[in-house]
């Protein structure tokens, strides 16, 4: 399965609740960031955690978020500070307005 996003794309983390094991931290749900690295594709931990095969593999991305976009001033960071997380593709959506040209 070919990755949907490329480096530089703006993405938004799905703000969904998810019962059971998953690796998308709550503090990033609904937040918008930029794809900075691609890490290939991996079996889906949401299935692996229950003894299932976790296929098809999910593309994995390092997404970078501005601290201020995540915490809106409510934290101890400098203006240019950032946080990254590694997120599987099914948790990401194109960030409509500000997307920098992935396909059409």
């Amino acid at each position: 399965m070919s990755p949907r996003f490329k480096i530089g794309d703006r993405v938004c983390v799905r703000a969904d609740d998810h019962e059971g094991h998953h690796r998308t931290p709550a503090y990033l749900k609904g937040k918008s960031g930029v794809v900075v690295k691609k890490f290939g594709a991996w079996r889906n931990p949401e299935e692996l955690a229950y003894g299932k095969p976790g296929l098809p593999k999910q593309p994995l991305y390092m997404v970078k978020f501005e601290m201020d976009g995540v915490w809106a001033g409510n934290g101890t960071y400098a203006k240019r500070d950032t946080v990254t997380a590694d997120l599987y593709e099914h948790w990401l959506e194109p960030d409509g307005d500000r997307q920098t040209g992935s396909g059409t």
Binding site: T24, W42, L60, N74, A78, D81, T84, D86
Partner: peptide
Amino acid sequence: REPRAVLREFGTDLADSVEVRVVDSTAD
């Protein structure tokens, strides 16, 4: 959330001109 405060607890005080990038190891 408070990387600068945490770094200071470790005795690491960085200029605001440096981007502190917190890398959360969430996957593989």
